[in-house]
Design a protein around this nucleic acid. Structure first.
Length: 268
DNA sequence: CTGCCCCTGTAA
DNA sequence: TTACAGGGGCAG
């Protein structure tokens, strides 16, 4: 479930609840979430080290530690990462947890598409070398978006999901941004004009900012993130329901084996 | 680019 | 029982 806004939420919560934590001990209940690394390696690199900062890069959570180590946690489809105060019981889908003073950092993940890796901080630039700009940073402009599509063909929706073009857009907000920009997800990137690139760029930023603000308006359990608010979606998950703008039925189609929702009337 | 794979849970 | 799920890596 987590996309950029939820990952951002997690990072801000960790800064709030687990600032200056020291990792005392690591427990791995299912080593598959570490692949290709191992519990032994994870323990060796993290135990006894203090957290020096939390950061989000695309949909990755970075936990910087003393001695130049960084935990990189990707939540995949069903991952959750949050601080849990000590008396509370670990949930059944806990795959790993980190003991810190006063509580635990819990990594829960039913489908285990997420990953926990430890890296030397120096190797991070290489790790993220292929990522596109952060959509909420100054580096992301409508010109940079247009440039990322140079010499590419194919529909705009899969283009937006490609982390090398823009970092951190997922299926929901790609669909919502295209609706906000009034662009049909089937349109080829080569057919978009400057006015459309501008509109798309603006829509991506607006939609993500609104989603981030939204995650903070709902109270979440144990500082975990709340589910994306389907009530505020314009098209995502609304197949057959009336478009909130023109009342015509929202359509669902498949693109690159992912579902795409759009309004054929409002998006052209 | 698309298709297949990785996994489990939930709803129709 | 089947369909579907908001993640990404990899081969073709």
């Amino acid at each position: 479930m987590p996309e950029l806004p939820e990952v951002e939420y997690v990072v801000r919560r960790l800064r709030e609840y687990a600032a200056d934590a020291t990792i005392r001990k690591v427990y791995v209940a299912d080593a598959r979430v570490l692949r290709p690394q191992t519990p032994r390696l994870l323990a060796r690199r993290t135990e006894g080290r203090r957290v020096t900062g939390y950061e989000r890069r695309a949909k990755n959570i970075l936990i910087h530690l003393q001695d130049g180590w960084t935990l990189r946690i990707h939540l995949g489809m069903t991952g959750h990462l949050y601080w849990l105060p000590l008396p509370e019981k670990l949930p059944p889908a806990t795959r790993a947890h980190f003991d810190i003073p006063g509580g635990r950092l819990v990594y829960e993940d039913s489908r285990m598409f997420g990953r926990i890796h430890v890296h030397q901080a120096a190797e991070l630039p290489e790790l993220f070398a292929d990522y596109g700009p952060e959509p909420l940073s100054d580096a992301f402009t409508w010109q940079s978006l247009r440039a990322a599509a140079q010499n590419l063909r194919g529909p705009v929706k899969p283009f937006l999901l490609d982390q090398r073009r823009v970092a951190g857009l997922g299926n929901i907000w790609a669909a919502e941004a295209l609706f906000a920009a009034g662009i049909d997800p089937r349109r080829g990137v080569a057919t978009l004009g400057d006015a459309e690139w501008r509109a798309l760029h603006r829509a991506i930023r607006r939609v993500l900012k609104r989603a981030i603000a939204g995650t903070f308006t709902v109270t979440a359990k144990a500082s975990d993130f709340p589910d994306a608010d389907l009530l505020t979606m314009r098209v995502y998950g609304r197949e057959g329901q009336p478009c909130r703008r023109c009342r015509r039925a929202v359509r669902r189609m498949e693109q690159a084996s992912r579902s795409t929702f759009f309004c054929p009337n409002c998006q052209r």
